[in-house]
Every structure is written in C-alpha cells, then in structure tokens.
Design a binder for these strands. Structure first.
Length: 582
DNA sequence: GCCGTTTTCGGCCCGACTGTTTTCAGTCG
C-alpha cells in the first residue's frame, strides 16, 4: 500500500495509479456498477504508462487530455498532488476491510464471493478464509460446494508461489519452449505466442499460446500433462489454463485455421485494443469475437484466416502487435498515419558493449567478430570508466592502451567492418564526470551513465544527468533512468528537463536492450520521438550471446512508435562517422 | 466515471469454463 499517511508526501504517478486501482477493488467489493470500476482501472493503467509527471501536467491544466481521465478523476488527482491524500480513498478504506482486497487476489474468488464470505461468515482476511475452508464451513453456502471450497484452498496455496509479473525474456523463453513442443504434435498445424509477450511488454503476467488445428483434444491433453505444469486451472475443448512450476499462468487456445486471424487478434490483445475493435465492428453492423465477425442483422459470419483480414474488415491497415494498446493506433490507422516501425533488420551497429578490459568476458577482437556474425557493420567498444571499481573501470592510462588494441582490431577486420573506441563514463554521485574534458575529446564516442546515487532526490539526480548532457563531449546517455526490472524503480528524474536538454544539445538517449533494463522504456521512447530527440538501441553486451538481446530493445522501440530514422545506429557508416566528428 | 461524424444521456466487448444449478452466476481474460 502507498505511503499516503505522511503529510505532504509527494505522490508519484505510480502511487496515484495504485490508489485508483485500490479504489477500483473496493468499489467492486461494494457492488458498484462494473463500468465505474473499469473507469478507475483504465485511469490507473493510463497513468502507469504515461511518460510525464502528473504534477507537470496538472500545472498546465491538461490532466483531462490523458486518456481515461475526465473532470472527476482530474479533480481527484489534483487533490492527491496537493495534499498527498485522497479523501474518497481514505473513506473507502474505513468502510472495507483491507483483508477483503487481499482475498480478491485468490484465483477463483471475485467480489461476489468475497462479500458473501464476509457477510455470512464474517471472514475478512485470507487466513480466516483458509481456516473456514479447511473446517468445511464454505461448502454449505449457497452457490458453493465441496469442489469450490477445495479450489479456494488451492488458490490460497498458490498465492504465495504465484509470481507477480515476469521479465519479458524469461516469459518468452518459457513460451517458446512450450509452444514448440506442442507444435511437434501431428494435430498442430501452426501457432503463435500471443498476449503481452507478442506485444513486447517489458514484464509479462500470463503466457498466452494459440495453435491452429482441426483436432484440439490431443493438444489440450498434451498441454495439461506437461511436466512443467503444477496445477490445471481449467481445460475444455478450445481453451485450457494451467499454472507452471514458476507460478506463471499459461493459457492455450486451439482453433481451426479458417478462424485463426480473429483468434490471434483476440488473443494478442491488449484488452483495451480489442474493446475498441469490437466497438468499431458494432458500428459496422457486426459483433466481433475470436471466432468471426457476425452480422447483427442476419447472423451471417465472416471468418478471417489472418489478422490482416480482421483489420481490413474494419477499414484499417494492419496494426503491428506492439502498437495495440489503444494509445492512438486506431485513430492513426484511420488517418493513414501509423508509424513505419523500426525493424531489427534496420540496425547496422551496436554502440554499447564491454570487453575484458573492464567487466566483459571477451577480447575486443572476439566482440568484433561476434558482432559481425550478428550482421552488424560497425561497433563502439564502451568499457567502464575509472571510478566504477567493481567493474574494473579503465584509468586514463589503460584507456589509451586499449585504444591501440581497438585501432589494431579495426584494421584487422578489414574495410567492411569498423571498430571505434567509446567509453561508458560514470556520472559520479557528486555530479562530476569521470574523465577530464581533454580525455573525452579524444574518444570516438562518449556514453555517460548513472550507476550510483540513483536514489538521490529528484533535483540532485536530475542535475547530474543534465550536467552530463550539456557537456559538449558527451554523445549519449546510457540506460537513462537506471531501472532494473523487476526490482529497481527508475531514478526520480525530471524527464521533461532531460528531453529538453537532449534536444537542445543533440545528445542521444539510449534504449538499452538488456531485458533487465529496457531503458528508455516504451512510453519515454515515444515521448523522445515526439520531441525530436535521437535514440540509439544497444545491447550493452558483455559476451557474444548477449547480442541476441537486441530483439527486446527493438520490441520496446516499436512499442514506442519508433521509426528507423529516429535511431542513429541504423545509419550507414559514413553518416555515423560524420556524426562522431561533428 | 468516461465519452460523443447518429448522443451531454445512455451506453459501456464478448465468450470459455466451472460448479452449482434445473437455466445460470461467478470468474477470468
């Protein structure tokens, strides 16, 4: 729960979103109409993805410009920004036992059941619910039975091991493993990973898999019998849900190929995007579901084998999965203004990587060869600077020694592959840079990064970053916000100021492709593009295998509506060399 | 509570699965 009890505590976007979500939970328990509940949830999600400080937006009196925020919620946001509290929320908390909100997290228990247990048995905590279930007190309630009671016990047991959101790379690897195994079955024709993995979100809740087949049962049976499944949550002829060993939920749907397009579209989401599409279908006289478009007048069906056909039916161009968040992609589609999203094939170089000179595993030569094997045509070696002792950062002397090796490897690799010397320079906690200007002036590329003092107050940490951006020798900021997924929150930076300074000085901001970072994130990358700030997508590789993380950086960029023209490492070598010189 | 080339009021996506039911409510995504 959020720290709203401290008078004058400055609430962050995230805390405000959490409060709206908590309000939604409590309203739902109270039996409030679902649409009012959903309005709070939509607002929470919208705020969570919003790339600007609500405080700044409120100062401009633009809160209602945010999707899902009307006059009422804008007023509530202002109240929270001004006072650190929301009276409405505090009142609800007095009214609704907080244990009931926790009970909602149990799989299979919703607001109706939770309130039934509370009213009829006085149950107000998960522990009390578990005790009642084990004492066989739930099964006599109306609408309940022995099976429902047992499911609640299992649901409580899985609460502890149930993961919160999982990192994209971990979920993607697990999803590929399961899907590929199922596609080996003779009944399986083809399949996709859907859901938030396909949309490239940085963290993943459930794994969603879709397979085309005319004979679903053998696939369903194989799915629920997998050794990595701990619990079957449900299994029917077209849909099964299981809990995996790591606590993640995995859903599988199997549909015939002629309906695969609507099914994949439905199963990719996002939910908000789907709702919009179904609304649009209605305007055109159809209902849309995972099976087909169905005419509202005569009940006739239009089936779609591909997603392209689904969008075509709605008069839209194909919308790539990464854009399907109802963040303007539908309006852009109708206006013919969808971005031409960057693709992994557009990337010609990697500007951020480490070698054994600091904390990397390989030599300069080995990294160059690995990069070339990954289809790149130039790279920047950017080892750590001197004050990052834990990473064996380079003294000025070692920096010049490394230069000789880099120049030698550059020559050895031939004219079609270039190796440049950069550095990932510490922005020290006192705000100074880690090398004097004359050293920086001699390097091909200078990346400045924050690794320490990330919890400093906003003004202090922002000033450090701005100082680096304004240094004429600093070319790029590495992983600007310093987040580590899923554990470390980003630094409390004034990103409006960071973008303005980057724009003014031409400093590039990185999208670090490491799945633990994905920093800038999607929303901030989009903001950067809107403001005309240049980006770079880099792997930060410390070994050959880590060049593969580029795909996550590309997914993040695509979610941020980034085009190749916004990203400097799509540039041909000549343009890049000119940029380094300027 | 939001939102508007049919609306400032009256809508708000749609279906699968489960367990309890005599036809459906609750939950989930």
């Amino acid at each position: 729960m959020t720290e709203t009890d401290t008078p004058g505590h400055l609430l962050t976007n995230r805390e405000i979103a959490d409060i709206f979500d908590a309000v939604a939970d409590m309203l739902q328990l109270k039996g409030e109409i679902i649409h009012r509940v959903m309005a709070y949830r939509r607002a929470a999600e919208s705020i969570r993805q919003y790339p600007r400080d609500l405080r700044a937006v409120a100062a401009e009196d633009k809160l209602t410009d945010i999707e899902g925020i009307g006059e009422t919620l804008a007023e509530k946001i202002r109240e929270m920004l001004d006072t650190g509290h929301l009276e409405f929320y505090d009142k609800l908390r007095e009214e609704i036992p907080q244990g009931l909100v926790e009970i909602l997290r149990i799989n299979g228990v919703g607001p109706k059941r939770a309130m039934q247990f509370y009213k009829e048995l006085g149950i107000a905590t998960v522990a009390e619910l578990e005790a009642a279930a084990r004492a066989d007190k739930l099964s006599q309630l109306s609408g309940m039975g022995a099976k429902s009671q047992q499911k609640i016990i299992e649901g409580i047991e899985s609460l502890a091991r149930r993961s919160t959101r999982v990192r994209l790379d971990i979920a993607l690897t697990a999803a590929e493993r399961i899907l590929n195994a199922l596609l080996e079955l003779p009944q399986a024709l083809y399949g996709h990973i859907g859901g938030s993995i396909r949309r490239g979100r940085a963290t993943i809740g459930d794994i969603d898999l879709l397979i085309a087949s005319r004979e679903a049962m053998p696939i369903m049976e194989a799915f629920v019998a997998r050794p990595d499944v701990t619990r079957v949550l449900g299994s029917g002829p077209t849909k099964s849900s299981v809990e995996l060993l790591n606590g993640q939920q995995c859903d599988l749907r199997v549909l015939p190929p002629e309906r695969y397009g609507t099914a994949l579209n439905y199963f990719t989401g996002s939910q908000a995007h789907n709702i919009r599409l179904r609304d649009l279908a209605k305007d055109r006289g159809y209902t849309l579901n995972e099976w087909a478009f169905t005419s509202l007048t005569d009940g006739s069906e239009i089936t779609c084998e591909t997603e392209e056909q689904v969008y075509q039916q709605l008069g839209l161009p194909y919308i790539p999965p990464e854009l399907r968040e109802d963040r303007g992609e539908i309006e852009a589609g109708y206006a013919g203004k969808l971005p031409h999203l960057i693709d992994i094939g557009d990337i010609r170089s990697d500007l951020h990587m480490h070698t054994e000179w600091s904390d990397g595993k390989l030599t300069v030569r080995q990294m160059a060869e690995a990069a070339r094997a990954h289809g790149l045509s130039y790279i920047v070696i950017s080892d750590h600077s001197q004050s990052l002792g834990v990473a064996n950062g380079l003294s000025v002397e070692r920096l010049w020694a490394q230069r000789e090796e880099i120049r030698r490897v550059d020559a050895e690799m031939g004219p079609n592959f270039r190796v440049f010397q950069g550095v990932e320079m510490e922005i020290r906690t006192d705000g100074t840079l880690d090398y004097p200007d004359e050293v920086l002036a001699d390097l091909d590329v200078v990346i400045a990064s924050l690794h320490s003092g990330l919890r400093q107050p906003r003004e202090q940490v922002t000033a450090r970053l701005l100082n680096a951006i304004r240094n004429p020798h600093v070319d790029m900021i590495g992983h600007p916000r310093g987040q580590l997924i899923p554990n470390r929150e980003p630094a409390d930076l004034d990103m409006d100021a960071v973008f303005a300074a980057a724009k003014e000085t031409g400093t590039v901001l990185e999208i670090n492709a490491n799945p633990q970072r994905l920093d800038l994130d999607d929303a901030h990358a989009q903001r950067a593009v809107q403001l005309g700030v240049l980006l770079s997508i880099d792997t930060d590789a410390h070994s050959a295998g880590e060049f593969d993380v580029l795909r996550y950086g590309i997914m993040t960029a695509r979610r941020g509506w980034v085009e190749a023209q916004n990203v400097i490492n799509t540039w041909p070598i000549e343009r890049f060399v000119n940029w380094m010189k300027s």
